[in-house]
């Protein structure tokens, strides 16, 4: 084998289109599961703070399960286990509609929802109860106090862990390779099998992941700067 030569891969249209498809799928999985996770996390949080007695233990059990079972095992349970228990017609329909990607989104999204809801909750809890009392003393109702006083501070506190967990979610999308979703790591493995240029293709894959992780971290830093009134005033 000749020396390290990135252009052998970068100038090959076939390899590049495989990588592009992989990247596309990685992003579909990432954005799909992120949206699912955030929606669920807000619902879980609402259920937790609601006066319903049953809400608290249900959410606690949900969070506990998803944080203590490895993501890989959760995906396997979804794809190899629950998939086979579904009604025949439905699973046939799924099988023709990229079931791997759908289950990757479901599995990763449900798992991530547990982390997101905990982040949001600890963010809200760190806003002292005096804030709510002060807002109400100034004439805000519950909803309006939540909207204008509590939420802005809570979300600001929750931002750093939310960003960290979004990066983790992006990285964890690579686990979908185990259930056969054709995402970036899968594409990297395929190109490796075709080209035998392992060093080059792994470097490309690593740099791609690193690049987008750093972008997410950068967006996070920008958002926390924007959300911080003290720093915004200075800027």
């Amino acid at each position: 084998m000749s020396g390290f030569d990135l252009s052998a891969i970068l100038s090959n249209p076939e390899y590049m289109s495989m990588l592009m498809h992989g990247m596309q799928m990685t992003f579909v999985i990432f954005f799909g599961s992120w949206l699912l996770a955030m929606t669920l996390a807000i619902l879980l949080l609402a259920l937790r703070v609601s006066p319903l007695r049953i809400g608290e233990p249900i959410v606690a059990a949900y969070v506990s399960y998803h944080r203590n079972v490895p993501t890989l095992v959760q995906l396997m349970l979804w794809y190899f286990g629950i998939f086979t228990l579904m009604p025949q017609g439905f699973s046939d329909w799924l099988a023709t509609h990229n079931a791997e990607a759908i289950f990757a989104v479901i599995g990763l999204g449900l798992c991530q929802a547990a982390y997101f809801s905990e982040d949001l909750r600890s963010g809200l809890r760190s806003v002292s109860s005096g804030q709510m009392e002060a807002a109400q003393a100034l004439g805000h109702g519950y909803t309006s106090a939540m909207r204008f006083v509590i939420m802005p501070q809570g979300v600001r506190n929750a931002l750093p862990p939310l960003i960290n967990h979004s990066v983790s979610l992006f990285k964890n999308s690579s686990i979908a390779i185990v259930i056969g979703a054709p995402e970036l790591t899968h594409a990297v493995k395929e190109v490796e099998n075709l080209s035998f240029r392992t060093f080059e293709i792994y470097t490309i894959g690593t740099v791609t992941y690193l690049f987008f992780s750093l972008i997410i971290m950068g967006i996070g830093a920008y958002l926390s700067m924007r959300a911080d009134p003290a720093r915004r005033a200075r800027a």
């Binding site: 990285k171 999308s173 690579s174 686990i175 790591t185 990297v188 690593t206 992941y209 690193l210």
Partner: peptide
């Protein structure tokens, strides 16, 4: 540390495996 934080563990495993 930054590389390790930004790259999936799976990718790192593949590197070491190779």
């Amino acid at each position: 540390v930054y590389v390790t934080r930004g790259v999936p563990l799976l990718m790192l495993i593949l590197w070491c495996y190779f």
